[in-house]
């Protein structure tokens, strides 16, 4: 295989109301099998995808937020959440679900895959990516 590329999945939309968030996660799960450098960014209403305590009973749509927790098992270690987007929506890191992975370089210590970063850093992460898939 050619050299590893940096894939960045940018999640911009709320988890329900449109299908973008769900079908984005489906790409991430398939993409995880390709042994590329994978990162996710959550910006704008996309930060709601990681909100704790989602309950979709009233809208007849599957609650897929538990699937994010499986990302750690797929060795996805970088979920970047934009701080400004959280703050603009009255959210903080405490409102987000936990996504952890086991760090093989640190005696398999369990670490959080969620990294809250500023807007400027999100821009740098985008600029640094080889392939940006935006949903």
């Amino acid at each position: 295989m050619a050299k590893t590329k940096k894939f960045l999945y940018v999640n911009r939309k709320a988890p329900y109301g449109t299908i973008y968030a769900l079908e984005s996660l489906e790409v991430v799960l398939i993409g995880a099998a390709f042994e590329q450098d994978v990162a996710l960014a959550f910006v704008d209403d996309g930060v709601f995808q990681l909100a704790k305590g989602q309950n979709t009973d009233g809208i007849g749509v599957k609650n897929f937020s538990p699937t994010f927790r499986a990302l750690g098992d797929y060795d996805v270690q970088k979920l970047f959440v934009e701080r400004e987007s959280l703050e603009e929506r009255g959210l903080s890191e405490a409102d987000l679900i936990e996504v952890v992975y086991e760090d093989e370089d640190d005696d398999w210590a369990e670490k959080s895959a969620i990294h809250v970063v500023g807007r400027a850093e999100i821009a740098d992460i985008m600029a640094d990516a080889d392939v940006v898939l935006s949903f």
């Binding site: 894939f7 489906e26 398939i30 390709f34 590329q36 935006s134």
Partner: peptide, 19 residues
């Protein structure tokens, strides 16, 4: 499958999205 999308990202110089 979606693997074809990932493979396209790996094998091309640019991936351009229309949406």
């Amino acid at each position: 499958g979606l693997g074809q999308l990932i493979e396209m990202g790996i094998q091309t110089d640019r991936l351009v999205t229309f949406g």
